[in-house]
Nucleic acid binder design. Sequence first.
DNA 1: AATCCCCTCAACCGCTCTCAT
DNA 2: GATGAGAGCGGTTGAGGGGAT
Length: 272
Amino acid sequence: MGRQPCCDKVGLKRGPWTIEEDHKLMNFILNNGIHCWRTVPKLAGLLRCGKSCRLRWINYLRPDLKRGGFTEMEEDQIIQLHSCLGNRWSKIASHFPGRTDNEIKNHWNTKIKKRLKLLGLDPLTLKPNEQTEESSDEKNKNTSKVCEQGVENKSLDMHDTKEVPKTEGKMEEKKVTWDDDDDTIGLLNNYEMLCSQLDLGSWMSQETKTSTSSYCSSSSFSLDDSSNLSVDESSYFQENSLQQWVDGLDCILSWDNFNSLEKDFPFLEYKQ
DNA sequence: AATCCCCTCAACCGCTCTCAT
DNA sequence: GATGAGAGCGGTTGAGGGGAT
């Protein structure tokens, strides 16, 4: 039958988002929440399709996004999960609060896959590479099916020595739960926690306590990380971080500052 | 300094899934 | 059960940055 396009593409803007567009979208969502993506661009005054807005929010603007490179532990976990779930990036991403499926997919395709190949391992089976990529792709579906039934659970530490699978002890540490029902729960919990901490309504209207601070001018950070902070640090963020986040939208939208931020404020580093 | 090439990742496309009617 | 609309997902693309020559 052929579906209607998700939006009328005539007159709609495409390509990279501007800071102004980001502002509009973020302000709209924070003030109104998300009810129907299709209507978001119109109501927010954006010349974008709803799909594009959704993607931008999920992959870039969400306040609970974790920025910065993947840790070795995260990479290991991605490999484990991928060996079980295949290319189901959203499922994989659900095990990494603050990470997006797009981010993980990109990381897999550009880094992990290559590294595994260099190690002579098939990225999908984690076995010594004997097959062509095509046959691996074919296997992708099969492995994930098998794993879905809970038959297989693999692990690999490619940062360690070489091609050797992890010891069982390490496996224990990094145990992953496969229950699909749990997948969304983690994200939901994060989001709920975030919302409860933020009290969006009140802080949006709150008077700015600190100027668009020097603290913020060099900062962007994951709110998620605050749970890993010491008591003092944590309370500091609960009181200040969100306001700063809103105040400093411009600088926060420039995630390039992330690395330097970690130098200035070591406690912002991702902790495992 | 200029050019080329490769890599990364944000964004798009098209398909499937889910839910309401 | 059939249909349609919206949301979500995964594959792919291409702009831009950075390193190599």
